[in-house]
Design a protein around this nucleic acid. Structure first.
Length: 115
DNA sequence: ATGGAGGCGCACA
DNA sequence: CTGTGCGCCTCCA
């Protein structure tokens, strides 16, 4: 696994239950503000039974942007809904309500999370 | 090693 | 609001 991929997975694993983050935000937190697509590629490479909650990562519009991979849009929607994340009629989530704010997590150097 | 494609994001019509 | 174009970065054949 590449350094980037590991970091992506490690960060995504820290997304709290019932919260979501955008690809761009993940990339930015890893120090690569323009690597949103890279994040998508890394997540797309995940197997179906992964421990990485890939479904908690959506695009900046608050929408599911999967087209077709091992992971399906319907599955992502179902998983999020199961965590209490509501979608509006346009299929978008409310960032104010479900968006995860890492706050001081910016530096992974901190190591453990800090609730 | 190289090329193509993609779970993005942003700026501009 | 929709549609296009371009940049950036990672994955995989």
């Amino acid at each position: 696994m590449t350094e980037f991929g590991e970091r992506v997975y490690d960060l995504v694993r820290r997304i709290p239950h019932g919260k979501v983050v955008s690809y761009g935000a993940v990339a930015a937190l890893l120090g690569r503000p323009r690597a949103a697509r890279g994040v998508g590629a890394a997540l797309a490479a995940l197997p179906d039974g992964t421990d990485v909650p890939w479904w908690r990562v959506i695009n900046a519009n608050g929408e599911i942007s999967i087209r077709n991979t091992d992971h399906l849009p319907a599955r992502q929607r179902a998983l999020l809904r199961a965590e209490g994340v509501r979608f509006d009629r346009r299929g978008r989530v409310d960032w104010k309500r479900y968006g995860w704010n890492p706050e001081e997590l910016g530096e992974e150097a901190a190591g453990a999370g800090r609730p």
